[in-house]
Design a protein around this nucleic acid. Structure first.
Length: 256
DNA sequence: ATGGCTAACATGGTTAGA
């Protein structure tokens, strides 16, 4: 099973890229973030024309998440149960016995801001949710745009970024808290090229200069991570005309 | 040097992203 995450930064604008990417690099499941469209505008027929099932949780202008899958998606839930969050950032479903939680973690804007406080609170709620789901599902993946670079090696210029949002100690501690429930960063299960990132600013030629962050992650429960045989960032769509600022991340599992 | 780019909403200028 190939399981991917991709922040498309507007599904409307990126639909052709999505189709081209899926045709060139088929995956079994992909979690999308930043749909930026309401549920009634979700391009269901076009996604089905790609040969995929879909479950979505959209929102006008901001946020919005979806799961696309070759096989049917069952037991779909949206949001974090018990958390009345007006921002639509979480969708979960089960595909071929694997539970997939797809998340779009808040950006946080800047350290100390209201949005930063919301991000930390949100991450605490996600942690509690994941801890509960780990007791229900042995094979669980928590994928998405985390808006946190786990370590300095996930940052192109750690000195410049030190203390900033996406790398600050409280954010990294919150991510470690999430991992400590029993998840593994599949990217780090394997030797990787140095300076591998998943997001590059649109400005200042950041992609050309590889000035990026690795903030898009495929996390897997212990049982699922034992079957993981690879994880990589696919930079190809980031080279296309009018790209998303994020690249897809793909993890492969040998689960028969 | 708080700039630089992109998308949405709106229709020119602001908000948000990361």
């Amino acid at each position: 099973m190939k399981l991917a995450t991709w922040n498309v930064n507007s599904l409307r604008v990126r639909l052709a890229h999505l189709g081209d990417w899926l045709a060139a690099s088929p995956v079994d499941v992909v979690g999308l973030q930043e749909l930026k469209l309401p549920d009634e505008d979700f391009p269901q027929s076009q996604i089905e024309a790609f040969g995929l099932h879909a479950a979505w949780f959209g929102q006008r202008t901001y946020n919005g998440v979806a799961i696309l899958s070759r096989a049917p998606i069952v037991d779909v839930t949206t949001g974090i149960p018990g958390f009345d969050d007006p921002q639509r950032r979480v969708i979960a479903g089960t595909v071929d016995g694997v539970r997939v939680i797809n998340v779009y973690v808040p950006n946080g804007q800047s350290v100390g801001s209201d949005k930063y406080a919301y991000k930390l609170d949100w991450l605490a709620r996600l942690r509690d949710y994941v801890a509960r789901e780990l007791t229900r599902y042995e094979r669980l993946a928590v994928i998405g745009d985390y808006n946190i670079a786990p370590e300095d090696r996930d940052v192109h210029d750690p000195a410049k970024w030190e203390g900033s949002v996406h790398v600050s100690a409280p954010e990294r501690a919150a991510l470690q808290d999430l991992l400590s429930t029993g998840l593994h960063d599949t990217f780090r299960l394997f030797e990787q090229p140095p300076e591998t990132y998943s997001w590059w600013d649109y400005r200042m030629g950041a992609f050309r200069r590889n000035h990026g962050l690795r903030i898009d992650l495929v996390l897997a429960s212990a049982a699922l991570s034992r079957s993981c045989i690879g994880c990589h960032v696919d930079r190809t769509p980031r080279t296309w005309e009018r790209p998303s600022d994020h690249a897809p991340v793909v993890a492969t599992f040998d689960i028969g």
